[in-house]
Design a protein around this nucleic acid. Structure first.
Lengths: 185, 185
DNA sequence: ACCTGAACACCGTTCAAGT
DNA sequence: ACCTGAACACCGTTCAAGT
């Protein structure tokens, strides 16, 4: 993100840096446009998900698509989640999901809570996930179990043991998603 | 965050900007120290929570403390969550929580999943919460319901209606936390 | 051990001027 | 309508020099 300077970007478009200011008021507006572009992609992908057999399938599909879209961009969840949305269509993309949940018996308030809860979970999960990926690139630190145990020092036996049991990626996501869906049920 | 420059910080410490480089290698190290300082506060607060009557009470207390600590700092959840942790004690702070959950009948893997799921939820929830707060400060945009409805335009009736039902802050957090705890149960 | 003054490379942004 | 060149204020960082 620090490397994204207006002076580095301009040559990629075969122009000088000041040329960008004809198209955009300032750098912040450029970043905002980036955000809405990504969020539009997210909601486009979400709106193309066909209704499933049950609300559980629908909400699970929602969560998986949201996660996979964030994963497309480096630090996507941290950078693009919870940013001010400039496009009404992005907010309106919630409509079919509220419709499916209310049709399945949720009150409107409960449906709204459910989608928000799932969204919060996915955002938090992927932030952590992408940070871990970024760290392993940077240097093979304490993500090897032995090094991690040594780094932790004495005590905290459960933390160490949990580290050895831990599996990352899809299965972990699916397990936690299942627990969350159980709660919504 | 943009306003936190090394040249603006130094006068607050009654020194010139270069003086900071005697104490810290570069600005990134300063930001990392900030992160670990905040995370240490978070884990200190968590370790002072007395065991409750049930694992539900314990996990709920965990979630509430985590949220309230993030809320202490502007954009705290977005900035400080999922950062590389430099202090083993911060990671070790998980130990008593794993102990309480396993004592309550969770397997170690399930306890680890449970804490991670709750953490992800809190992070996602507070990111959204703090962004909303920041937006209302900036300008009374479309956070009045009438303006929001107008901004949304035609269609999306459920989204509009949900906006009118919506209550922010503690009750919303508690409801979603309850659903999550039900899922863990 | 801790800090300053001066300097360097780089950044976002402006603006007159070009086509 | 779209872009350039030159310039400005500011930033992170270095380093010789001070106490």
């Amino acid at each position: 993100m620090d490397a994204l300077t207006v002076r580095a970007l301009a040559p990629r478009l075969d122009v000088g840096a000041p040329a960008l200011y004809w198209h955009v008021r300032n750098k912040q507006e450029l970043l905002d446009e980036m955000s809405t572009f990504v969020m539009r992609r997210v909601t486009d992908a979400l709106s193309k998900v066909p209704p499933g057999a049950s609300w559980r399938d629908d909400v699970a599909a929602y969560a998986r698509v949201l996660r996979s879209e964030y994963l497309l961009y480096r630090d996507g969840a941290r950078i693009f989640s919870g940013t001010r949305i400039a496009d009404p269509d992005v907010v309106k993309a919630k409509e079919p999901w509220l419709a499916r949940l209310t049709a399945a018996g949720f009150t409107l308030a409960a449906a709204d809570d459910a989608l928000d809860l799932v969204t919060a979970f996915v955002v938090g999960f992927v932030i952590e996930e992408q940070e871990r990926n970024r760290s392993t690139e940077t240097g093979p630190d304490r993500y090897s179990l032995a090094e991690r145990d040594a780094w932790l020092g004495d005590g905290a036996e459960l933390v160490k043991a949990a580290g050895h049991l831990r599996d990352d990626g899809d299965p972990r996501f699916e397990r936690q998603l299942t627990a969350l869906l159980d709660g919504l049920a």
